[in-house]
Amino acid sequence: MTKLTHLDEQGRAAMVDISGKAVTSRHAVAEGFVRMTSETFELVRSGANPKGNVETISELAGIMGAKRTSDLIPLCHPLPLSKVKVRIALETDLPGLRVSGEVSTDGKTGVEMEALTAVSVACLTIYDMLKAADKTMEIGGIRVLEKQGGKSGDWAVL
């Protein structure tokens, strides 16, 4: 079994010591979705939401969320992010919005948490912007799709 790295010898929470790790290029991609009624989906597609453009505002919120990850997740290291890209796509089959987040840095630790936070905050923003129209929305499928760099190497969902 893999040793949990966020616990010290006494089993207490501790931030992982990365001082001896090399700086390498790190990259991660995450995704999630917000499922909604067909009527709410059409409200988004038509651009008629009274709170404004759902996609643009939620993409911006996701970028801001990625930048604040270490403030939200107690044992995450603050990282100098070199790239954060959040994209939202309309998916008729859900119906709803698919959210993707892509984050890069040159650092001593990965950016998976930043990518997941970007997607999560974007999904929450979508919900907030549309909750007056649809209280039954579902946020789901939030996961890492790929990561690159670091000691454990590259990984991707097949």
Rank of each mutant, 00 (worst) to 15 (best):
L60G: 14
D106Y: 12
S104G: 08
E91Q: 11
L4I: 15
Q148C: 13
S19R: 08
K67Q: 11
E102A: 04
I63T: 12
V121Y: 02
T5W: 10
A89G: 10
G11C: 02
I139S: 11
V16A: 14
L79W: 05
E91T: 10
L81D: 03
E114M: 04
L60H: 14
D93P: 14
S25Y: 13
G107I: 12
S46Y: 02
L7T: 07
I18A: 09
G47T: 04
I126V: 12
V144Y: 04
P80R: 15
I73S: 04
K3H: 14
E91V: 12
P50G: 07
E102Y: 02
D154I: 02
G47C: 04
V157D: 13
V16R: 09
G62C: 10
A133K: 04
K51R: 11
K3C: 13
L94V: 09
V86F: 01
K3E: 15
R12A: 12
D128E: 09
S82N: 10
T56W: 13
L79Y: 03
A115L: 04
A22Y: 04
S38D: 14
P74C: 05
M113W: 00
M113P: 10
L145S: 07
G52P: 08
V84E: 04
V111Y: 03
T125R: 01
R26G: 00
E59M: 11
G32N: 05
T56G: 13
V111F: 05
K21I: 01
A133V: 05
T109R: 03
R68S: 12
T92S: 15
A133D: 02
A13R: 08
S46I: 05
A122F: 05
R68Y: 06
T105H: 04
A22R: 09
S38M: 14
T117N: 07
I18R: 08
G150C: 09
M36R: 02
P78F: 06
K108R: 11
E39Y: 11
M36C: 08
Q10F: 14
V84R: 05
K51C: 02
I126F: 02
E114H: 07
A22T: 10
T2S: 15
L145N: 07
V121F: 00
G11E: 02
P50K: 07
H27L: 13
L60V: 15
A14K: 15
M137Y: 09
K83S: 11
A122T: 04
A13L: 09
A30M: 02
S100N: 15
E55F: 12
R143K: 09
V23T: 09
V23R: 06
E9L: 12
R12G: 11
L81Y: 01
V86N: 01
G141C: 07
M15I: 14
T125D: 08
S46E: 09
G149K: 00
L72R: 09
L81M: 01
L145K: 12
A14E: 15
I73E: 01
K135Q: 12
M137S: 06
E112D: 00
I139G: 08
V119R: 00
I18T: 09
T56K: 14
S38C: 13
G140T: 08
A13N: 10
T109V: 03
S58G: 11
G62D: 05
T40G: 06
V29N: 10
K151C: 04
W155L: 00
A89C: 07
P95Y: 05
I139T: 09
A48E: 08
G149C: 01
K85Q: 13
L4K: 13
Q10C: 12
